[in-house]
Amino acid sequence: LPPPAKKPLTKIVSHLLVVEPEKIYAMPDPTMPDGYIKALTTLCDLADRELVVIIGWAKHIPGFSSLSLADQMSLLQSAWMEILVLNIVFRSLACEEELVYAEDYVVDEEHARLSGLLDLHVAILPLVRRYKKLSMEKEEFVTLKAIALSNSDSTHIENVEAVQRLQDSLHEALQDLEGAHNTEDPRRTGKLLMTLPLLRQTAAKAVQHFYSIKVQGKVPMHKLFLEMLEAK
C-alpha cells in the first residue's frame, strides 16, 4: 500500500523553509599558518558573517518585524548564539562526530584538538547526538530555530504580550507540523521543545569560550560579533 499522503505544511513552516539562508563558507585565509589563531580567526569571521545573515533571516519570521525595534534587538542579543549553534548542529547531523561549522570547514576531534577548538567541539557534540536520536527534520529545525529566538528569555522586553503572541504562533506551527507529519509519536513536539535547555546551555558555553578569547585579545574580531558578545 502507498503511504498516506502527508498533509500540507502550515503556512508558517513553509515560509520558514523558503527564507532559510543559503549555505555559508568559512574560506580560511590560506596565507595564515595553521593552528589556534588561524582556527579562531576563521570561526570569528564566519560567525560575524553568519550573524548578518541571521539578522536578515529573523526579519522574515512571520510577526518578528512587527515587534518594536528594541524588542527585536533584545531577542537577537539573547538568542544569537543559540541560533548559530543550532545551525552548526543541523549541518552536522549527517556526520559522525564531526562539526560542520561551514560547508568548507568540517572539524573532527583531532582537528579540534590541534587547533584549540576541543572545548567548543566537546560542548556542541552532545546536542548533535540529541537531535540525531530524534532524527530531526529540516521542517522541525527551521521552526525550532524561530522558537529559540522568540523564547530567548530576555529580561529587557518592552511588549511581553507581543512576544508571547509570536511564541504562541510558532509553538502552534510546530504542533501542527507534528500533528500532520508525525502522528505516530504524540509526544514529539514536547521532545523537541525539551532540547531547548541543552541548546541554551551549549550556547552559554560557546559565548563563554569566545568571550575569553576576546579578553585575551590575540584573535581579530569584527565589530558585529564583538557587539553581540558584549551584549551578553
Binding site: K59, I61, A231
Partner: peptide, 20 residues
Amino acid sequence: KEKHKILHRLLQNSTSPVEL
C-alpha cells in the same frame, strides 16, 4: 542602543515586515 549600532542599523534596513 548607541552601543549596539550595527545590530540596530541591520534591523532598520528595511524589508517589508511579514505579518502573522
